[in-house]
Structures are given as C-alpha cells and as structure tokens.
C-alpha cells in the first residue's frame, strides 16, 4: 500500500486514491485540423517509462480533487505531489 501526500489533505492511504494516468496532457485546440496520426497520438499514445513518471491522481475517496505527481514505476517512490497549474518539477537524477 502506498502512502500518498494529497496536496490539500496531507498523507493518506492509497485506498483513498485513484491514478488517472499520465499527467500534463494538453487538450488539442485544433482537433479538426490535425492529421489522424496526430489525433491518435493525442488520444491513445501515453508515456510508459520504466523510471520516473509524471501522472495525475484523484483523491477520489477524500477531497475528490485532482493533483499531479512524480512517481517511480519500479520503486513506486513519490518524488513530488503538487496542485494542478503548479509548474512541472524536474525529474530526480536516478
């Protein structure tokens, strides 16, 4: 079980959260103009690194707010959790 620091509520058990996949995705503003391949990339292609990963989480059984996180996909360590709109932190070196 992970211990996750909600930026609003503080550290809570993983049971209260749900991971929402890759973070910092931006919605296409010109969806009608882009090619099918670009749209497919936006819609379906996701980073799936073996290492540090930017992701979104929802404190679904708590304050029900979304936030961003940087987490390692092998050690599961959280490097940072931060509110939407806050700048993307740099990845740790390892």
């Amino acid at each position: 079980m992970l211990l996750i620091a909600c930026p609003w509520c503080g550290p809570r058990a993983e049971l209260e959260f749900r991971c929402g996949g890759q973070g910092h995705l931006t919605r296409l503003t010109d969806a009608m103009e882009v090619s099918d391949a670009e749209f497919a990339r936006y819609l379906y292609m996701r980073d799936n690194p073996k290492g540090w990963h930017y992701e979104r989480w929802n404190h679904v059984n708590g304050c029900r707010r979304w936030f961003n996180a940087v987490r390692h996909t092998v050690t599961h360590e959280f490097h940072a959790t931060y509110k939407p709109g806050e700048p993307k932190p740099d990845l740790p070196r390892s």
Binding site: M1, L2, E14, L15, R18, C19, G21, N48, K50, H53, E55, R71, T73, V74, T75, H76
Partner: peptide
C-alpha cells in the same frame, strides 16, 4: 492496480 508499474507487485488492498 490503477498505476503504471514494472515492479511485479501490487497493493494489498
């Protein structure tokens, strides 16, 4: 588990 992982283990809940 809802999160991405390569570690061959998940959460107990």
């Amino acid at each position: 588990d809802t999160w991405n992982s390569y570690a061959q283990r998940g959460s107990l809940f």
